[in-house]
Computed example of a mutant assay.
Amino acid sequence: MEALRFSFKEKKLELCHLNVPQVTDPNNVLVKVAYSGICGTDLHIIAGEFPCNQFAEITLGHEFSGTVAEVGHDVISLKEGDKVTVDPNSGCKRCSFCHAGKPHFCKVGCVVNTLGIYKDGGWANYVLCPEEQVHLLPAGISLEQAVLTEPVSCMAHGWDLISPVCVGEKVLILGAGIIGTLWVCILHHQGHRNVFVSEPNTVRLELVRKLNTGYVLLTPDQLRKNRDADPCKYSFDVVIDCSGSPPAIEQAVTFLNPGGKLCIFGVSPPQSKIQITPFDIYRKEIKIFGVNINPFTFPKAMGLLGAMGNRYMNFNNLGIKLFPLNQYSDAIDQLKKGSIAKAVFKM
């Protein structure tokens, strides 16, 4: 089989030919991958900016869907031929965080156990997965759409944290990559119409325009100028940062209305710093929410995907482009240039 392998030591990504993994653990499932996405985290890993397995080459890819090819003899919830999507994250199930329903804070499992970051993932024709992390797709969700389950599951967790967001409240989304675009879809689907999107890349803004939401789309420069001219109109009840840009986050705090919420969804480099005036947090009673992956939100994500359907989950309108695995360099280049919102490998 083909697999895209990454070496942290050499900072090298290359296409390899490997044997198909064998099901030796009775609780494992062999998934034949259909679609596998490139996440912004993957780009940070390849650049050496995000922690991953430093001791062995691994197959990257933590967003993927496919078909069950084989199951271990103790697997009871799945069978050969089932269409599935896979949650790459898991906890140890023993620590206080896992027992509190917060496996994303687990220091034994979670990130150090993640498929596609610490263990072999979905940038390959086949991948071994624990049964408990494999989710059967409901009718009406295609394998193509299901590749978005992992990012949408993270957003479902973010939505739980910042809720309630009442229809009519003014929302600002910072960044119109795929995550910002998916936030646009979820907000519009749930009835929100008073939404602004700020993105420096005008190509990405035009991609968002194809969703036909009627949202206000503008660059950061336009946002600043409009804010100076009309601070009342350009003040917000909720700001969702999908950019990971410290200067954008700093500015976003000043845009918040009293009682406002700041959702930090984008991943900034670990060494980044922001400056926020504590007096403003006190005076305006600002609430700041960090969003870290997807504890138990895969079922919610599949519910969202099914509900949004083709109206929102159309790859062409989302700016998602499909690539064969051997065109990984081109896929990464186009993603970095911002000419597409997301790249997905079609196996």
Rank of each mutant, 00 (worst) to 15 (best):
N194S: 11
D237V: 01
E10Q: 14
H192A: 03
Y234M: 13
E144G: 06
T85Q: 03
K225C: 07
K11Q: 13
F315H: 10
K93Y: 09
T254H: 13
Y215R: 10
H189E: 09
V216K: 13
Y328F: 15
A47N: 15
G309P: 04
C242I: 02
L128N: 05
I179P: 03
I179W: 02
E49Y: 08
T181H: 05
F55H: 15
R311V: 06
S163I: 00
K273A: 09
L318Y: 07
L205V: 11
I332D: 07
Q271I: 04
V20Q: 15
K287P: 00
K337F: 02
E70M: 05
Y328D: 00
K32W: 07
R311K: 14
I162D: 02
M302C: 03
G191R: 01
K102H: 14
G40V: 03
V238I: 10
I274Q: 01
Q251P: 01
L217Q: 06
A100C: 09
E199S: 10
I76C: 14
M347P: 13
G61E: 00
I293R: 12
A301T: 00
K12V: 11
K170E: 07
D280V: 15
D42S: 09
F97Q: 09
T202E: 13
S77M: 08
G191D: 07
S329I: 14
F323N: 01
I332L: 15
R227A: 10
V23W: 00
I332K: 10
A252R: 01
L335W: 06
L18D: 04
F289M: 12
C166A: 15
L223I: 11
Q145L: 07
L256I: 10
G306W: 01
S7R: 02
G66D: 08
P295S: 11
D228P: 03
G91A: 01
E14Y: 13
L148G: 02
N89Q: 13
S272T: 11
Y312S: 00
S245K: 11
H192F: 09
C154Y: 06
S142Q: 03
L304D: 03
H17N: 14
H135F: 14
G214D: 10
N53P: 04
S96Y: 12
G121Y: 11
P246A: 01
A100T: 01
W123H: 09
E250T: 04
A301W: 01
L15C: 02
T67E: 15
D82M: 03
K300H: 10
G260M: 05
S268R: 06
G168A: 05
Q251S: 12
G40Y: 06
K284W: 10
A56E: 15
T219L: 05
T219V: 08
V147D: 01
P278T: 06
R209L: 00
G266A: 04
P299V: 00
L60V: 12
T67P: 12
V171L: 03
L335E: 08
G66Q: 10
E250C: 07
H104S: 13
S163W: 00
H17A: 11
D42E: 15
G290E: 05
A301P: 00
L161S: 11
P88R: 04
V108A: 09
F289Y: 15
H157W: 01
V291K: 02
N53Y: 04
R311N: 10
F296G: 00
N292C: 10
C185Y: 01
P231R: 11
K107H: 11
G81Y: 10
F315K: 06
F289K: 08
V127C: 10
C110G: 06
V111F: 07
Q190A: 11
P200C: 05
D42F: 12
F196C: 12
